[in-house]
Each structure stands twice: as structure tokens, then as C-alpha cells.
């Protein structure tokens, strides 16, 4: 159960970071090409931020609050690295996460 919650926290963190990255023009261009519409950028930011928040909630459900805060901060770093490397290596891998936009 704890492992599942942590898995969910990791997934939410990676999705959140991806959405926040794709709200930036250069990264959107890498994945989709062109310029993202302003409305989409706003949606991506809200989605990204809430996904990171959801990740924190999953962490808090899994562990003692002090432990959860550390796990979350470290997950943010790990997810940001993963997204940055994916963007420079195979940016199109992230395309499914903006299939709706």
C-alpha cells in the first residue's frame, strides 16, 4: 500500500514537472512545434502545480509528515532531472501528456 502511494507520488511529480516545462515556449516547441496558445499555457501551469500538490498529498498519506516532506522535495528534484533529460534526449516521449491540448 505504501509502495503504491509512493509510486503515485512519483508519477504525479513527473507529470506535474512535465506540464510545467511544456508551459514554457521552447519546450513546447521541442515536443509539439509552434507556439502554445495562451489558454493552453495557463491550463498547463494550473495542471502542473496541482499535480505537484497531489504528489505531496500522496507522500503525506504514505509516511510521517517529516519524512513525507523530504521525500517530496527529493522527488521534485528527481522528476525535474528526468524531465530535463527526456526533453534533450527524446522530447516526443512527453507528447502523450499534452495529447488533449
Amino acid at each position: 500500500m505504501v509502495d503504491l502511494l509512493l509510486l503515485a507520488a512519483t508519477a504525479a511529480c513527473v507529470c506535474g514537472m512535465t506540464w510545467l516545462a511544456l508551459a514554457m515556449e521552447p519546450h513546447w516547441k521541442q515536443v509539439r512545434g509552434g507556439v502554445p496558445p495562451a489558454r493552453t499555457v495557463r491550463a498547463l501551469r494550473v495542471l502542473g502545480a496541482s499535480s505537484l500538490f497531489a504528489s505531496l498529498l500522496f507522500c503525506l498519506a504514505a509516511d510521517h509528515a517529516s519524512m513525507a516532506s523530504l521525500v517530496w522535495v527529493m522527488l521534485l528534484a528527481g522528476a525535474a532531472l528526468a524531465v530535463a533529460f527526456t526533453l534533450s534526449w527524446r522530447p516526443r516521449l512527453l507528447a502523450p501528456l499534452i495529447a488533449w491540448a
Binding site: 509512493l6 512519483t10 509516511d63 519524512m67 523530504l70 521525500v71 527529493m74 522527488l75 528534484a77 528527481g78 532531472l81
Partner: peptide, 17 residues
């Protein structure tokens, strides 16, 4: 000293970063 395999690996990641 805590028991948390995910956090341990994340620490390794932080150190290597």
C-alpha cells in the same frame, strides 16, 4: 537512520547530482 528505500535512492541521486 530511517527505513525508507525510496528516500535512500533519492539521496543517492541528490549526491550524484
Amino acid at each position: 537512520h530511517f527505513r525508507h528505500w525510496l528516500l535512500r535512492w533519492l539521496y543517492v541521486l541528490g549526491g550524484l547530482a
